[in-house]
Design a protein around this nucleic acid. Structure first.
Lengths: 133, 133
DNA sequence: CTTGACTCTAGCCTATAGTCTAGAGTCTAT
DNA sequence: ATAGACTCTAGACTATAGGCTAGAGTCAAG
């Protein structure tokens, strides 16, 4: 298969495929005499793996680690689980940070009258106010 | 005040102060004959405003808009509220996206035994599996 | 007057995950 | 054989929010 076809079938961009190759997430494929990359259909599965891992919040760096674990006979399921748990902890932290923002933002928007001069708006007043932090 | 002192007092980096000036979030200050920036202590308040707005999830671009609204006599509290509500909607969307990731990630980590070869790990199996999306 | 701390500008570098471009060569169907 | 679609490389560019560096000049204290 040529690169355009694997990319389309896997649902990623052509540039992404070449990018993953450069970044070591994808093995270098065979080349035709012309220089064109020649892929086995298995690569589509591999690309989908990458796409799904991204959807779970893994960075490309971590995905590279997942791939390394997958092919390392010494690695255990615990190693993989550890990576996933790190991701989980990070996602939970990000959720908490966003929830804090949401709470603060809700508070100020509720207090803003929604009309009149900007000086009446609690949002700007809150931001200008002296205080801790 | 010199730049180092305002930066320290406001709790931001010196480079950030110069960066905000370049980006139009901070008025260009007076200069000493030597070329040194000479700040009024008010700038510290302004820098804290920026910092707090960042903590609420506003981007510098939006903060620039907030500042413009603050000084525009035509602007209303409603304009400011609108910006805050946009921010809120975006934050809520990001929370939902992270919660979806969390759910999926919890599911696979719970199913992973935590020991044995990686082939026993549901995480890798899930990622490799064919399926929708 | 010297020393150490501070400041100036311009411009390059960081991380992330690719996207886009130019210019050249290739593939395939008709 | 030729048109149109595809692919190759290298390198520049996107967005965000600054950080870092060099080399030159300045400030304040002893």
């Amino acid at each position: 298969m040529k690169i355009g076809q694997v990319a389309k079938t896997a649902g990623v961009g052509i540039d992404a495929v070449r990018f993953y190759e450069r970044e070591g997430l994808l093995a270098k494929p065979a080349r035709r005499p012309s220089g064109y990359r020649e892929y086995s259909p298995d690569v589509v599965v591999h690309l989908r793996f990458i796409r799904r891992a991204k959807e779970l919040g893994f960075s490309l760096k971590e995905i590279r680690e997942l791939i390394a674990l997958e092919t390392d006979p010494e690695a255990t399921a615990g190693d993989v689980k550890q990576l996933a748990e790190n991701r989980l902890a990070d996602i939970e932290e990000r959720i908490r940070a966003l929830q804090r923002m949401r709470r603060a933002l809700r508070k100020v928007t509720e207090e803003c009258p929604g009309d009149g001069p900007t000086s009446r708006c609690s949002i700007l007043r809150t931001l200008s106010k002296e205080g801790r932090s």
